[in-house]
Structures are given as C-alpha cells and as structure tokens.
Design a protein around this nucleic acid. Structure first.
Length: 326
DNA sequence: AACTCGGGGAC
DNA sequence: GTCCCAGAGTT
C-alpha cells in the first residue's frame, strides 16, 4: 500500500468510482462477460485508440464469434479481417492462442503464459473477466499515477506496486475489473496527455501534479529514421503480382515486390528479368520509428491476382491506390 | 534496457 | 509537423 511514502489518499477511490459509474463511455465491450470477447477487446486496444478498435472488434466477432471458430480459421483469413489495424503480431498471436487453448485460463499467471498476453493484457483480462485482484497498468494508468503523485518518470516496478496498492485499497467498494477500468477511463477521457480537463476531474483535490501536467510524466522522445524504398507493381490481365512479405515486419501479409535503397529499382528489374519500368509516383508512409519514402514503378506482367483476396498492409494499399489498381 | 512492430487521430 | 495511443516480444 505504501510506496516510497505515497499512501493512497482517503476518499480517492470512492470519488473515482462514483465518477466512473456516472460518466463512463458506452463501449461495445462494457458489461461483457465472455472472456474471449474481453480478451479480443484488450488485444485490439494495445497501442490502439478506442475509436479505431471498435469497428475491428465488431467485424472480428462477426467472423470469429468464438475461440473455437478463430482456431479453425486459416491465419490468412484472420489477417484479412485485421488488415489496416496495425501490429499484426497481435493477430498472429491471437490465432496461435486459439489453436492452443479451447478455454481461457482464469488466472493472471495462466493468462500471462499465452502468446500476446503481456503484463497489462493478462491483468486486464484476469480482473475484468475473472475478477482477480490484479492491477492493470497501461499508458493511461501510468500517466494518471505519475500526475497524481507528481512523479516524473516512475519505474515500471514501482508503478505496478502503486497501482496494486490502490486497487487493493478500493476493493471494499469496487470490483477489480471495474477499478482498473475506472483508472484507465480517467486517463483516456480527462487526464489526457496534452490538455487534461482538471476542473472536471473527480480526484483533482488529491492530485499533486496538478497544473504541471506536462512534467508528469516526462515525454520520451523518439526519432524516426528515414528509409527509401522502391516498389514495383507488375500489372497483368488478372490483377497485380503479389508475394508474401518476409517474416518479421508485416509478416503474414502480402504485398508488391519492394527493395531498399538507391539500388532498389535495379534489383527489382534484375529479379524479374525486366529492362525498364515506368515511374508512376512517390508516396510517404510513417511507421513508429521509420519514415518511408516510396518510389512506385509499374511494368506489364503476364499473371497477377486480385489484391482484395490477400491481406495487405496500409502501405501496399496506398501503393495500389496510387495506380488505381485496387 | 533498448529495439522493433502499424496505423491513425488530436493538436 | 509532433505525440502517443487500454503493449508485447526479442535481443
């Protein structure tokens, strides 16, 4: 409960819970009991905003209503439903999980062993679906606690202890799942990164970082490295030539042939026995840590297939859209 | 501990 | 343009 001399202020828990029960956003997975659906929501929400996750949540459940249905489906079909959502390892892990287990474990320890379930997601599912008293610490909770205790860069371990102490202190009037979600909801709707709505915050009077939200937590800078790519769209009567992306980045998805660097075009031409290709245009695409400049070339081809039948990344969709080849 | 992995929305 | 989102896995 105590962590470096930062006890939970009395009254904080109740204030937060009252607010949460009144003001929570109506989301498709609110009140959900099916552990599979709760798990799906949590995985979709990994590094993904609620608004973006919702349509995928609905579509995914429509196509794979149960863990069994997911396990029976081919990976490529799972990825096709996931396409455009990013972080495709989530879909691969979820599919692998569904093939491993028909029934989800009901404890944090059991869930934690499953592919794609890290500390946060295992805790979220354990608490929300099974009522286990374990704190789920995500980016929201990290920010809320950092501000609440005016702690610029709280170490992950301390943060977990702090959140666990708060949760246990709140057990008298909140279920573990409800408490975890209340803390996250606060971070997602009021205690936001840029301009927090402190006047509307139910726990403002407990907040030691109030008025200095930009210090808590300290922003971590990350820089993007520029990368130049050449893409070759081979167009034939039946569509375009597609190939599976190599393992690693975008693994499991398909796309048009691409090569890195200034020699990219020559490599591609050599690879397909072509003399020339026509430059159709360029586009930019950002990954979290990369800034891509893509030069798109086009050449005639004999074969090809319908791109709609393959799972494609947003990057490849952009490339194909550039030529109207979708 | 430091990288890598998507995509998009808010500002 | 920048930041970061209901993070996890690998090195």
């Amino acid at each position: 409960m105590l962590d470096g001399g930062t006890p939970a202020a009395p009254g904080l828990g109740k204030a937060l819970l009252d607010w949460y029960r009144r003001c929570q956003r109506p989301l498709p997975w609110r009140g959900e009991r099916d552990p599979y659906r709760i798990l799906l929501a949590e995985v979709l929400l990994q590094q993904t905003r609620v608004a973006q996750a919702i349509p995928y949540y609905r579509r995914f459940l429509e196509r794979f209503p149960t863990l069994e249905a997911l396990g029976r489906a081919p990976l490529e079909e799972v990825l096709r439903v996931w396409q455009g959502c990013g972080y495709y390892a989530r879909a691969r892990n979820l599919h692998r999980l569904a093939q491993q287990t028909r029934t989800l474990p009901s404890t944090y320890a059991g869930l934690r062993k499953l592919p794609g379930l890290g500390p946060y997601t295992a805790a979220a599912v354990a608490s929300i679906a099974f009522g286990e008293a374990v704190a789920a610490v995500d980016g929201n909770v990290r920010r809320v606690l950092s501000r609440l205790y005016a702690w610029e860069d709280p170490p992950p371990k301390r943060l977990q202890q702090l959140a666990q102490g708060l949760l246990e202190g709140a057990l008298g009037w909140a279920s573990p799942g409800e408490w975890n979600q209340a803390l996250m909801e606060l971070g997602a709707t009021l205690c936001t990164p840029r301009r927090p709505a402190c006047p509307r915050c139910p726990v403002e009077r407990f907040c030691r970082g109030k008025g200095e939200h930009d210090r808590y937590p300290l922003p971590k800078s990350r820089r993007q490295k520029p990368l130049e790519l050449t893409a070759l769209v081979l167009r034939g009567p039946a569509g375009v030539y597609l190939e599976p992306r190599p393992e690693g980045a975008l693994g499991g998805l398909w796309g048009v042939p691409m090569a890195e660097g200034p020699e990219g075009l020559e490599q591609l031409l050599r690879r397909f026995g072509l003399k020339e290709a026509r430059l159709v245009g360029g586009l930019r695409h950002d990954f979290t840590h990369r800034r891509l400049q893509v030069w798109v070339y086009q050449a005639p081809w004999e074969g090809g297939e319908d791109p709609k039948k393959r799972p494609l990344s947003r990057l490849d969709q952009k490339i194909l859209a550039l030529l109207g080849a979708t």
